[in-house]
Computed example of a mutant assay.
Amino acid sequence: MEADSLDLQPEPLPPSSDPLSNKFASLNDLAHELASLQDLSNRGSWRSILDKVARARSLSLLTTPHDHLTYLAYNVLAFTKLRRFKEALTELETVDDFDSHHYRYETYPKIYPTRSGSMVPFSLRWLHALVPIKLGDRQEGLDRLYLLLDFVRGKMKEKEEVAASLDVWRKREVFVVNNIVTEHLKGKEHGVCLDLIKCLLARGDSDPHLLSKLGYIQMQIGDLEGAKGSFDEVEKQNSLNETELTNMVSRNKALMYLVEKDYVSAVREYDACIERDAMDAVAINNKAICLMYLRDLSDSIKVLETSLERVPTVALNETLVVNLCSMYELAYVNHSDIKRTLSNWISKVAPDDFDSSCTRI
């Protein structure tokens, strides 16, 4: 699940037992002007979301408990995206207990006559774990992520006989495990990461992203044969569209070449990715780095600049800009002027959450 796209689904019910499902012809049937909030989030207009939530609250436009929780989730996400983590935490603290009866449909039979279960968006539970990490309390955040994983697995047991519902919770499980693995990787706790991923894979969840992450971790600890085996397994998967899967396979091959310092072969793989998908920002960034290792700084800069000109909304991320600015510093005496020009351009096209300090002016 993308962090920008909130998982606002209530606990899924079997279609036959959910008469309301036929009423939800649009996002706005789920919550007040939800389509507008979703559109703003897709465009990275996080300040506009804060304004919209504040207006809806001040004018008492939110009339149901679910409306309040949905707008709360968007507000917390917007504060988090804008790195206003203390304000995000303040919003989260307005919810006393996610499992309280106050946040269950059956508590309000007149409003939700045919619904039962929790109305808390899954995204809100995830943000509840993420915000402490952003505030520097890693252990609290990890504890909450593990509690969230237990919650998800509990739901999976409840939904075993309902295929559609079970699929939703399986995707959420993979999402939470990925979050946990990411945090453990920051602490170089590779053993924990391997155990978490292998536990999912042993159960038959051969998610290509998980397999790729497993291979990456195996590379980190020097298990190149294990990494190659994991990357080979990625090629056998069919849960992604052809271009996405083929590019993932090529990027994995490129990583193996990078370990061997065969930068020419790595560039070839990244070129193939970019030819298939001009918006593959990972391939674009890594190709530029490989060219830098090959001492072709001019072409390296050209790759990144071209990507920004062609697809700024995709290529414009802090990692790519940091690398481009580093290359400017290596290539030009007047790099400050060049970086200032880049920074001015970024200010016109970047989403609200872009960290302009990455240009290091």
Results as ranks from 00 to 15, higher is better:
Lys134Trp: 01
Gly141Ile: 08
His101Trp: 10
Met279Gly: 08
Leu124Cys: 08
Thr63Ile: 12
Ile301His: 01
Phe354Asn: 06
Leu304Pro: 03
Phe24Met: 08
Lys186Ser: 14
Val314Arg: 04
Asn323Gln: 06
Trp345Cys: 04
Val177Leu: 02
Pro65Gly: 04
Tyr257His: 15
Gly187Tyr: 12
His68Tyr: 09
Tyr332Asp: 00
Glu309Thr: 15
Gly222Ser: 06
Glu305His: 07
Asn241Asp: 15
Thr243Ala: 04
Val181Gln: 03
Val333Thr: 14
Val282Ile: 13
His128Leu: 01
Pro15Lys: 00
Leu258Phe: 10
Cys193Gly: 13
Cys199Ile: 06
Pro132Ile: 02
Asn241Trp: 07
Asp195Ala: 11
Thr94Cys: 09
Pro109Gln: 01
Leu72Ala: 05
Lys157Ala: 08
Gly136Met: 13
Leu304His: 09
Val168Ile: 15
Met292Trp: 07
Leu20Ile: 08
Met219Trp: 02
Trp46Asn: 01
Asp4Lys: 00
Val95Trp: 08
Thr341Ser: 11
Pro312Gln: 10
Val168Trp: 09
Leu224Cys: 10
Asn317Ala: 00
Ile217Ser: 04
Thr70Arg: 03
Met119Leu: 11
Phe79Ile: 04
Arg84Lys: 10
Asp167Ile: 14
Phe354Trp: 05
His66Glu: 06
His128Ser: 10
Lys261Asp: 09
Thr306Phe: 04
Leu82Trp: 04
Arg115Val: 01
Leu166Arg: 14
Phe85Tyr: 15
Leu135His: 09
Phe24Ala: 03
Gln237Ile: 13
Pro65Ile: 11
Arg83His: 10
